[in-house]
Amino acid sequence: MTGRFRIAKGWRDMKTIAYLTLDTLFWSKKTIFVVFISLVVLGMAVLGRLVLSYNWIRAPFTPAQVFSTLMSTAVIHFMVVFVTLFYGTALISEEVEGKTLTYLFLRPIPKPAIMVGKYLALVWTSVLLVLPTVVFSYLILYLRDDLRPFWEDAGVLGKDIGIVFLALLAYGAFFSLLGAWLKHPILAGLIYAFGWEGIVSYLPGFTRKLTVTHYIQSIFPHENAPASLAMLFGERTQAPEAVSTLLLMTALFLAAACLVLREKEYVLEQ
């Protein structure tokens, strides 16, 4: 088998696995739940817009403030983490629980191609579910008679989309690894995302850099968001370094997931 043929076959295998996974991943109860959460986030954007438009409260604030709060609190620290935790841990463990992994493992496809194919499906599904929430929230908050803020902050929206995409990649790879590796990936994922990341962000020194969230916060474009509070206690990582670290983390987690899938014996209980 020539190298070129191998690459072509590998890509085709991954695509086939991705299509197969998309079908089972997207059309599930999980998606209904995530769509519900997206709608609630959009509902909050609508509420913010109403408060802005009708001056319900005395202390004035701008669309940018509401948008940055939504982004940092609801999207980055909740939606991204939950969607990737939900779908990422399901990639392999759902096949193990459903005892369907046999059908994939007994095909002429290398196991890493199965992992990467499934990961591609995860990225596609999560992008489809999270990014529209970001864009629609922005539209809801900014679309008004005076379009100047809309155009002024469009760059921030672009950055947010990029950050959310990077976050989906990194968290997705990490939770895929947990799903392939552990028997109870959900608990481990929750402890990591809401325990470890929460605590370590406030710790001094290098420990803060042992989280995904540190690099996301480092490139987060909203200065007044609650998440930036953590930054008071430590330095931000420079943007190029943060982006490349996130990409490197993604590659490492994914490679580790492939290795686990290749070497682990999955005993499907009768």
């Binding site: 295998d13 095909r107 002429p108």
Partner: peptide, 8 residues
């Protein structure tokens, strides 16, 4: 069919 596709 889905499983056959995995054979290329």
């Amino acid at each position: 069919a889905a499983l056959l596709r995995l054979h290329g």
